[in-house]
Amino acid sequence: MEVISQNAVYFAVVAVIMILLFAWAYFTKRIQKDFITMTWVLIPVAIAINLTIGQIVLVLKLPVYLDSIGTVLVGVICGPWAGALTGALSNIIAGIILDPGWFPWFPVAAAIGATAGVMANIGYFKNWWKVVVTGFVIAIVATVVGTPISIAIFGGISASGSSIITAFLLETGRSLVGAVLTTNFIAEPLDKIATSLLAFAIIDGLSARYLSRFPRGENAAVEKGQKQTQMIIALVVVVLLILFGIFILPSLTAG
């Protein structure tokens, strides 16, 4: 009883923050600038890419999902809001045709698209190691957004294979939040880095003329000359993020 009313409070707080953010972006015309006809036409194709590649990966029996390549693609070349919309609608479509159990995960998919967009806006989608960093940041965001959903709606252990890890961590005496957070943090980075790299490979294969028709096409301009200092900074960022994941996340949730 107590726990659920607490959830209702969190839910309301998050909803209010999202509405304020949306209103700010709407009234400063940041959203409208990104949603041109090309964006609206790209979104259905991107959703279809998400789901179809998800199916191909199932056929190939690879240990990843890769079901957000289209979402990352839209986030990069059409901006974070379009990416978030693509992710959310992608889960809604999957709920309509595959399994209604996909619906509650839509905030995770939206966060993936939005993060890809923000990272691309600050220039982190221009060469392969920056894309790896982006993939890592996306994985962290997906973990942070996905864990509360997993706990509040699915009780922490859902019907996916990675629940075995959660169960193991619970047996070793971790708290529920810590166990779910650690599980997601183990499972997500590989998938999201692979997703980002594939999206990067796709963007790399598209012509500059084609990309320039999208609102944020310049985000995808691939850097040819690779500077040493940038590479070192990017590597340090990755190492710091890994350290953050290994040491700080568990101790934050130890209690």
Partner: peptide
């Protein structure tokens, strides 16, 4: 199997992305 991902995904994605421009003009 990882190696076979690229020749499967490539034609599919580029083929469908090319149609986007035409469809935008049409609608």
């Amino acid at each position: 199997r990882i190696g076979s991902l690229v020749p499967l995904v490539g034609p599919l994605v580029f083929g469908s992305l090319v149609e986007v421009e035409e469809r935008a003009i049409a609608i």
